[in-house]
Structures are given as C-alpha cells and as structure tokens.
C-alpha cells in the first residue's frame, strides 16, 4: 500500500493539480499582470506601471467600503459563531427531535445568495414600511443590520453542523470525570468543551471571516450598495469599478483593487489561523 502510493502519487495528484493550474494559478497570475495595465479586454492590455494602485489607494469609496466590510465581518463573525455554538450545544443534549432541528437550521444554507437577498429585501422593506422607517436602499444603518440578519440566518446552520461534529468528538470520559470531581456546568463548558472544540472554532471563524470579507451576492441583491455607495462592500465596490464606469482605465483600477483585496483577505485570515491554532489542545 505504502509503496504503491509512493510510486503512483503523481497520477493521483494530476487531475486536481491540472484543474488547480488551469482554474486558479493561471488566471491569478494573469490577473496580477493585468492590475498593472490599462485594458478593455485582456488581449489588448497596455502596461501602465503603478498608476492603478495609486488610484485605488486614494479612492475614498474603496476605503469606505473597506471599513464597512471590516465592521460587518467583525459583527457577523461574532454573532454567527456564538449563536451557532449555542445551538450546537443545545442540539447535542439528548432532546427529542434534535435531528429534525439540525436539518431545519441547516436548510437556509441550501438557497443561493441572490435569491436570499431579494427575498429578505422584500421582507425587510415590508417591515420597515410598516414601522414607517426609511427602506433598506435609503439608510446604510438598516442596510448593515439587514445584511447581518441575512448572513446570520444563512450561515448559522452550517457552522452549527461543524460545532456539533466537534462537540460529539469529545470523549464522554472527560465530562464524566469532571462531573465526578464536582465541576459545574460552566466549568465543563469553558475548561473542557471549548478547548476541545478549538479545531472547529478555528475552521468556523476562518470561514465566517473570509465569507464576510468576500460577501457579494447578498450585498448586491439586498442593498445594491445604496444609498450612494454607503452600504457597498469591497467585492461590490470592485465590481462597480470594473463594470459601471466607462473608459479603459477603470478596468485596471478594478483589477488593482481586486489584488489589494485578495492580499488583505489572505493576511487577515493568516493572522486569525495562527491565533486560534495556538489555542488548540491535543486530545
């Protein structure tokens, strides 16, 4: 077995590696090159030096959307993980119908972001209209709250499944022993359960942070960046730079923003991974 793997591993790696190169490495490198160009189509690109980056870093709207996105990511990461963990705790207790509830909580994940965005837009606009408050497209604060509600609703189920798996993998002996030693429920939670599900926390925070940063569909459908770009997040800002301006220079600006965006997401998730990994314990 071992020998066979050592001999044939290139064959096993090949399909995925080929797909990875064609679908990721090549477009990424080309995208990097284009971010230094002025272009309408990628075949007719003229080298432009650092102009695109200079523009992107001086664009007020880009920075506004960065801070809006950062705030959104912090709020949604905390809310989603806390609520998902709480639900996971509840559903790992032996209560009746816990499998049914797991399915129910997971369901919102199966609906696409655009569809969800439009459904929630109708829903929230009706509520706001009844309360005689300005609609989503008129007030960035409501837009922010709406996006947070939508993302929580969609992602809590997914994270819950990961937490449930983590909680179920804690050996019963630990908890039993702790109980015999007279540990309280709180102590069991903070001293045994949480340290043992750290790998799940790592993966869940990673997913929610990157999802928060990369959010596009829901943002486009729910608020469309209104009013006047105030609820526009990074991905939508890049999209708008690329497509809703005229003149060849805008594509380069959009491309430069996209590269900056990519680097930011990588740095932030690296820091997060390092931080949560250091808290993981060996079982």
């Amino acid at each position: 077995m071992e020998k066979a793997i050592r001999k044939y591993w290139p064959i096993f790696v090949l399909p995925t590696l080929a797909a990875f190169c064609v679908g990721f490495i090549y477009p990424f490198v080309q995208g990097l090159y284009l971010s230094f160009c002025k272009f309408t189509t990628i075949k007719k690109a003229t080298f432009n030096g650092l102009d695109n980056y200079v523009y992107a870093l001086h664009d007020g709207e880009f920075w506004h959307s960065f801070w809006f996105t950062a705030l959104f990511t912090v709020v949604s990461t905390v809310l989603i993980n806390v609520i998902a963990f709480a639900i996971a705790l509840a559903l790992t207790n032996k209560i009746k119908g816990s499998n049914f509830f797991r399915t129910v909580f997971f369901m919102p994940n199966l609906i696409g972001g655009i569809v969800l965005g439009y459904i929630w837009q109708i829903l929230l606009n009706c509520v706001l209209s009844l309360l005689e408050k300005p609609l989503l497209a008129l007030n960035a604060t409501y837009g922010f709250i709406g996006l947070t509600i939508l993302m929580c609703w969609q992602q809590i189920g997914y994270m819950m499944i990961i937490y449930i798996a983590g909680l179920q993998s804690i050996p019963d002996d630990y908890i039993e022993a702790a109980k015999i030693d007279g540990a309280t429920t709180g102590q069991i939670l903070f001293r045994i359960k949480i340290p043992n599900v750290m790998p799940s926390i790592t993966i869940c925070t990673f997913l929610t942070i990157t999802n928060g940063f990369k959010l596009f569909d829901q943002n486009l459908a729910l608020t469309g960046g209104e009013p006047a770009h105030a609820s526009e997040m990074l991905a939508l800002n890049i999209y708008n730079t690329f497509y809703s301006r005229s003149g060849p220079q805008w594509k380069g600006y959009g491309q430069a923003k996209a590269v900056i965006f990519c680097i930011m997401v990588i740095i932030i998730s690296m820091i997060q991974l390092k931080f949560t990994k250091s808290k993981e314990v060996q079982q």
Binding site: F12, P15, V22, G23
Partner: peptide, 12 residues
C-alpha cells in the same frame, strides 16, 4: 479520486 476529478472537469 474519481469523483473529485470528475467534479473538477464538470466544473470547468
């Protein structure tokens, strides 16, 4: 492996 490579190509 078969499934993943199939999925990768289907994706393309």
């Amino acid at each position: 492996v078969a499934m993943m490579s199939a999925a990768a190509f289907a994706g393309c």
